[in-house]
């Protein structure tokens, strides 16, 4: 058994030595299996970032919450939500209860510029998001552009978000607050006639 391991290591060393030009620095000394694992980890994490907006935009709150680790955190400025219960509350607070089969034709988010850095069972990721909303004539209007900075963890064999920090860029958090206030005021005015008198 021990002999096998030595032969094995020797063979691998020969294999690696045979292709110096092909081996980039970051994969030097890694086995094929380890290199493949890194590729799979990158694709899996990329997918999590994209699933995030798929679930958010379709208001699939259960699936959204499941993207986070047990102690997962969602952070935006001084707003911090930790653990599945708080994260779920954040979404139900924002969107209320969504009827099953509801299709969102009002907004969606482009997830782009994904950068992933792997550190074994931990990883960091940066990405950008552009929220596009339905404008007055139905045209898509870019409404909110921002960055995410994530920490991820491999939990029970699956990658999960340990901490996501949302950094709004355009508009700033203050400007966004004003826009939302104005929108709520406009909606309230529009809805007033419907109120029983």
């Amino acid at each position: 058994m021990r002999m096998t391991r030595i032969v094995n290591r020797f063979a691998l060393a020969t294999l690696v030595a045979a292709m110096p030009a092909l081996a980039p620095a970051q994969t030097a000394g890694l086995s094929i299996e380890q290199r493949l694992q890194r590729v799979e980890d990158q694709l899996a994490i990329q997918r999590i970032l994209i699933n995030y907006h798929a679930y958010l935009d379709s208001r699939n709150i259960g699936a959204y919450v499941s993207l986070f680790a047990k102690d997962g955190e969602w952070v935006n400025g001084s707003l911090v939500r930790k653990g599945p219960a708080q994260i779920r509350e954040l979404l139900t607070g924002l969107f209320g209860n969504t009827p099953p089969g509801w299709v969102n034709t009002e907004s969606y988010t482009h997830t782009t510029n994904i950068q992933i850095d792997l550190h074994g069972d931990r990883a960091t990721a940066r990405s950008r998001h552009l929220l596009v909303k339905r404008g007055p004539d139905g045209s898509p209007v870019p409404t909110l552009a921002g960055r995410y900075e994530d920490e991820l963890i491999r939990e029970d064999g699956h990658w999960k978000i340990l901490r996501r920090v949302d950094y709004p860029v355009l508009p700033t958090a203050e400007e966004w607050g004003k826009i939302m206030q104005a929108r709520r005021a406009a909606t309230a005015t529009a809805e007033r006639p419907k109120e029983p008198k």
Binding site: V7, N8, L12, T14, L15, A18, M19
Partner: peptide
């Protein structure tokens, strides 16, 4: 050739 030989050696050892 070297690669193939190395791969064979690798496989033979397992």
């Amino acid at each position: 050739l070297v690669l193939r030989a190395a791969a064979l050696a690798l496989l033979a050892a397992i």
